[in-house]
Design a protein around this nucleic acid. Structure first.
Lengths: 202, 202
DNA sequence: ACCTTCGTTAACCAAATGGTTAAATTAAAT
DNA sequence: ATTTAATTTAACCATTTGGTTAACGAAGGT
């Protein structure tokens, strides 16, 4: 008579939607209950408090952010392909999860400790050392110009993530429709890759 | 016996600090009153409601974001110097206002209409058309490679702003101290400029 | 049939929160 | 000095909000 799947999963799905949209402070337990089509008390029955529920959603999101990077940073592709793969994967992931960046960025900003502890434990934290090694190796082989690896990494993730975080502003300033926006982001995959590789040419 | 300057300004300063830190939903009127060292009722006496007060702070912040770009996009420097100036200015501004990006990004995301109307009215909205013209002109003069101007603009602002939005995450991942962080951002001014100009080399 | 356990609900509660009011205090004008 | 207007404060108010409770119903075991 009520929703479809089991209540537990319904709640998580609803909480994800509401928290992602409104953030921890802006989200209302009632909103989540309504979205899940259940009574507010059920939220507390399954997940003791707002904070506990939020933590689950946030950790899931943070893991998502880390995982995308990790998978690629640890692969053993040649340097150029690695860059291309990182960018392709990241932008693809963001097209599917457009709310992720602002949500994570904002909550990290609200409570930095949360991400610190999340990073420390669990093995899914991206191995930037591996990335740095690769950059250094590519430099020594004269495949790319000299650049501080961390700065390069910043450039890459900046160009991938920022447009999604600033989407409403960008669409306003540029006057792009939703359709044009999607095309713009699809274009970016190749464009950013080329941009970076050109900048790195020896 | 109480604060220094006139109450009105005290309130604005306090509101700015609290809103920037906690966002609209997370900020408490009492926090702002405490920060300003005054009674909560004063907030309502001078600025009718939380929303009204917030709007002032947000508009100021949005204008700040726009203004930095506008001033430079409209200057008539040669192309390369223009790029360098944009980046220098932007990063300098962000070092002084580290909370700006997340605040603006988050609130834009919470309520896109706000930025739309802010952009439409008032003459301080950045003239991206001027920027596009300049890029196109530089292309025709063969000073730079062909690139869609909007994508170039996205790349530039991404690399400038994103690191500040993701600062806690970046410091965690890289293990940088506050001092190292500042150095890293100072370095970026020259580094990003060079990175972009290299990527644009014909 | 009866009991127990789990899932669910409506009603309720205390704290927090944005906002108001009326009185008190200070500053300005006459 | 007296009146008037602007500031400031403490106490209050209504609503919202996260959280709890007790009762109810369904499912399964005996």
């Amino acid at each position: 008579m009520s929703g479809e799947k089991n209540t537990e999963a319904q709640i998580i799905a609803a909480a994800k939607k509401i928290f992602m949209q409104k953030g921890l402070a802006g989200a209302r337990m009632q909103d989540i209950a309504d979205e899940a089509g259940i009574n507010k008390a059920m939220l507390h029955y399954y997940y003791r408090s707002k904070d506990k529920l939020f933590e689950i959603i946030f950790n899931e999101a943070a893991d998502n952010v880390f995982r995308v990077l990790s998978a690629i940073l640890q692969s053993d592709m040649p340097f150029r392909e690695m860059i291309a793969a990182i960018i392709d994967n990241y932008i693809d992931n963001l097209i599917k999860n457009p709310y992720l960046p602002v949500f994570v960025l904002n909550e990290i900003h609200q409570n930095p400790e949360r991400i610190v502890s999340r990073f420390t434990k669990s093995g899914n934290s991206p191995d930037i050392q591996a990335f740095m090694d690769k950059v250094n190796k590519a430099q020594k082989k004269k495949q790319i110009r000299s650049i501080q690896p961390l700065q390069l990494l910043l450039n890459i993730v900046s160009m991938c993530i920022f447009p999604f975080a600033a989407r409403p502003l960008i669409q306003t300033v540029s006057g792009a429709s939703d359709q044009q926006w999607k095309e713009l982001m699809e274009e970016r995959k190749a464009l950013v890759t080329e941009f970076i590789l050109r900048a790195l040419e020896p």
